[in-house]
Design a protein around this nucleic acid. Structure first.
Lengths: 211, 211
DNA sequence: GTAGTTGCATACGCCGCGTATGTCAAATAA
DNA sequence: TTATTTGACATACGCGGCGTATGCAACTAC
């Protein structure tokens, strides 16, 4: 009846991660009592310290998992697009939309950086920036965009996206604000494209359609 | 010998603000013990709660003051420039450079948003975004830039700047990273300009000179 | 002079984190 | 099988930090 040992351990780890993720994502990191949400998972703080060292270590683990999920989602989006440029734009818009999800916004863009510093600096996290960089590099190789520093540009885009998401989420009319933000964002991105013949035509169409 | 009452009160308020600002800016909000830094100012937590309600209220007051200072600095920079466009670019670069100062970075861009939510949403704060918006509006009126949503664009620029600053400050080689970030930023901004005759020439020169 | 208000200090209790310690089951060795 | 060790948790304890209630002295108003 009882499952083998390794899976039991994996399950408790997963339960702790899920409980912490939910608590951090709803009430925030500082307001989350470790006693409370471990009890909610049918465990105690002892298990938590055993697996993750301390509260920050737990947050780190949560973030790492979420980052991986987000990276996968971005990859899905871009791979579905007909052209690389379209894939890139879709990726950026998808990034904003992910940043609108309360859990992601709170953990990845607010509490995470505040508690752990700039996450994008660690190894093995922030696959999102890496994904954006990669897309930009490919576009440059295709000659589709002007010559820019990929990583720097990816980071600027990342910053703009996350702040746009904050703006949207806290605005009185998220729908309207979201349209404005995405539109402005598209306009900025469009201008990365090389201004020659065909692309210029495409730019005109896209800038009108909006979201 | 003893000063009049109102100035004494103002002095204690100022002392508390300064002490808190220093503590928040160096060790961070969560790690700052109210007992410690009030004692450092020759006071106790009693004075603090009397004037600011609670720890968050104190942070709020600190941020409000810093925001006012930053807005003034930005205004200085832009008013010194020969043209409006140059003033705007200078303003943006100055914004990045301010975001590099550890105290500003920590309080305004990390702990502030984490503790208080999106600061730019409150009344009477975030003069910086207002300043950027204003510059963009004027440029649009001049016909110097393409037609974009000023506030949305200002917020994107704000987000890009602060994240760029985080990136720079945490990088191994801040000098080099700073050059890359500012260059990428300039490139992005340049593309807001209307691509007609004279401006196109100016773009070519600027994109080479860098910081 | 007295009553009320204001500016701060002192005292108290609670909560939350981290650590040290205990316990029991599974793994390994003899 | 039995003995020993290791690992996965739970329990117990102390400490620091926050918020609040209370105290007190100085100033103001009448």
């Amino acid at each position: 009846m009882s499952k083998p040992r390794p899976v039991m351990i994996a399950e408790t780890r997963a339960k702790l991660l899920a409980a912490a993720r939910h608590a951090f994502g709803t009430v925030g990191y500082a307001q989350s009592s470790m006693d409370d949400f471990t009890a909610g998972a049918g465990l105690t703080r002892g298990a938590l310290y055993h697996h993750f060292g301390d509260k920050k270590g737990l947050l780190q683990a949560v973030i790492q998992k979420m980052d991986a999920e987000m990276t996968a989602r971005l990859h899905n989006v871009s791979s579905r697009a007909p052209t690389r440029w379209q894939g890139f734009v879709d990726e950026c818009v998808a990034y904003i939309q992910m940043a609108l999800e309360p859990e992601i916004q709170r953990i990845m863009f607010r509490d995470g950086p505040a508690v752990l510093g700039d996450i994008s600096q660690w190894p093995s996290t922030n696959g999102c920036i890496a994904a954006l960089s990669r897309s930009l590099r490919e576009l440059k190789a295709d000659g589709a965009i002007v010559d820019v520093d990929e990583e720097a540009t990816a980071r600027l885009i990342n910053g703009a996206s996350s702040h746009a998401a904050l703006w949207i989420a806290n605005s009185e009319n998220p729908q309207e604000t979201s349209k404005r933000a995405v539109e402005a964002f598209r306009a900025l991105l469009e201008r990365l494209k090389k201004p020659d013949g065909e692309t210029a035509k495409a730019r005109a169409t896209i800038s009108v359609t909006g979201s």
